[in-house]
Amino acid sequence: MILVTGASRGIGLAISNRLLERGEEVLGVSRTATNTEFETRLLDVTDFRAIKNLSDEIRLSGKKVTAVINVAGIASMNLALMANPLTSVNLVHVNFLGTVYSCQAFAPLLVRNGGGTIINFSTIAATLHLEGESIYAATKAAVENYSKTFAKELSEFNVRVNCIAPGPIRTDLLRGVTEDQINRIVKAQILAKQFEKDDVVDLVDLLLDHKAKSLTGQVFHVGGVR
């Protein structure tokens, strides 16, 4: 079984559908109900107790978890001086703590299984220090840093932890980002083209494959970054 947070839409949904096509059992986690072809649990990744309860339920069911993919995230574009404090709190809670809670609660399931893969999601904004994305980018930079340390702590358990940092992929998170801004970000990529959700899903496929067994503690930029 593979767990995917943020599975109700965007990249999380695309990943879940691809896994389903491959014949994997997917358990999606999301705050909102959508019509998916895989089982979904409605819960908020900022609720550690709810995440831990789900982990306990899976453990007691005896199901084997092979991977955890943490896609759940929110974006908000504000100049740092104008950021609403509540928005800042939400960004930290969902993007950073949501990833931390999911990793902490679900990683023991991988350890029990003799190993597995964790994929967390960052953004190109964390590397580019884009104006108007200071808090969003900082939460994702925190995810990258956390993932690198977590990769070390889990290395002895044969659990690999990596980050994927996409550029501007057309999802709801891009709302409010102008074409001009998108073009500027794309130009900062080594491969200066706007990639699609499928390209990100391909990278997930790669990291889940046993051929990626040497890859851990790394941040993969879709299209590269200058």
Partner: peptide
């Protein structure tokens, strides 16, 4: 060591399940 400490936690989690509670 840290590896065995995590394994201890998992064993205690199992023991908790035998006793019908979730060891945190």
């Amino acid at each position: 060591d840290s590896l065995l400490l995590v394994e201890l936690c998992l064993k205690l989690e199992d023991l908790g399940s035998e006793l019908n509670f979730n060891f945190d």
